[in-house]
Amino acid sequence: MYQAKQERYDQMVYNRVGNSGIQLSAIGLGLWHNFGSVDAYENQKAIIHQAFDLGITYYDLANNYGPEPGSAEINFGRIMAGDMKSYRDEMFIATKAGYEMWPGPYGDWGSRKSIIASANQSLKRLGLDYVDVFYTHRPDPDTPVQETAAALDQLVREGKTLYVGISNYNGKQTQAITNEFNKLGTPFLIHQPRYNMFNRDVESDLFPVLTKNGKAAVGFSSLSQGLLTNKYLHGIPENSRANKSTSPFLQETQVDQTLKTVAKLNDLATKRGQTLAEMALAWNLRQPAIATVLVGASRPEQLVDNVHALNNLNFTNEELDQIDQILAGQGEISWGKH
């Protein structure tokens, strides 16, 4: 039987989420990949155990994570019902609704019908009475923002989530739904945008809105689907997602155009005494608007490596200027959906 390490909170950094009373681990575990029905269950348990032993408190799911859709929640629920049950109150668990989950007009987007039904299904799969934050996964162009906000507010009042969040909303959309939450008195906690060295548009569009409203963000795609690691320093490995024709997120031509940029960034990381991934995570966390960066893991050791980023979170102005210069000729890469 798993027993958590007593010293699990000693090395982790915890950041306050905007003006709220919540602190989240600077590194969060994303279950987008490696927790589906096609993945080894014992390895999933080992990853969760390692994350918790490292002081990671934030666990990020969505209704459609798998494959198959829903299976990540089912597997996480099994783990919670077993080894992790006694630690529930030390964990901050998130899930979402908004991408296609079941056929027909109610299994997608942000209507009240879709959000409430999805939340009920997620809680059943997770085996939990409530989640800590429930997100609308993306803005719905065909549903009034008032309806989406009211549905999330209802989940709080029914005790199905403690807080609500939004994901993939731009600055204007974020302000619009924030206004609705303020009218309702909804505990709107956090935004989840794509953010990494290759995806920086949110710095000018979204982050000022979050700061103005006393909110914060948890960034996904923190390592740009593995580009900001040592995986591609010497080309595209055969077992990478970039080399699989079924991947809509990483294509060989897209990786090739970034290899020189990645190599230069890696040289700077080496001078800082970090791996490229460690530097990239630390760079994300330099942003005051970012409370947590999400990482994925296919094995426990990857989490140990990622948490090493916290050993050197400070950048000199010269280092930040160098990174900006390296990235200047790269342009923005934006692949896939989350």
Results as ranks from 00 to 15, higher is better:
V133M: 14
G104W: 04
I48R: 00
H137Q: 12
L327E: 05
Y2H: 05
P208E: 14
L61I: 12
G165W: 04
Y99G: 02
E319V: 04
V17R: 02
A277H: 02
A277M: 07
E278Q: 15
I236Q: 05
I177A: 08
S25V: 04
N243V: 04
S25G: 06
P139Q: 11
V304I: 15
L276K: 02
G21Q: 00
Y59G: 10
K183S: 10
N120W: 02
R112L: 08
I22Y: 10
S71Y: 04
K172N: 09
L31R: 08
N311A: 12
V164K: 08
L268S: 07
A46T: 03
A309H: 03
D10R: 12
H234S: 11
D129C: 00
A94W: 01
L126D: 14
N34P: 00
G70H: 04
W335M: 13
F198A: 13
Q251E: 09
Q302M: 13
I22M: 13
W32I: 11
F76R: 06
G165H: 01
S122T: 03
V307M: 09
Q225I: 01
R78G: 01
Q23A: 12
G165L: 05
K337P: 03
N179Y: 08
D305H: 11
Y130S: 13
D10W: 01
W335T: 14
M1T: 13
S25Q: 02
Q274A: 13
Q330I: 00
L184F: 09
S334R: 15
K244M: 08
A72H: 09
A217L: 04
N179L: 12
L29G: 11
E42G: 06
K124S: 12
Y87P: 07
K160I: 03
A62H: 10
A282L: 11
I115W: 07
V202C: 12
L268R: 13
N199Q: 14
V304A: 13
A46C: 05
L210A: 09
F198N: 06
H49Y: 12
E252C: 02
L250N: 14
L126M: 13
E278V: 09
Q44K: 06
S122M: 05
E238P: 02
E203M: 05
G66K: 01
K5T: 04
L123K: 09
I56C: 11
L128H: 01
R200N: 09
I323E: 11
L276F: 02
Y87N: 07
L126V: 07
I74N: 11
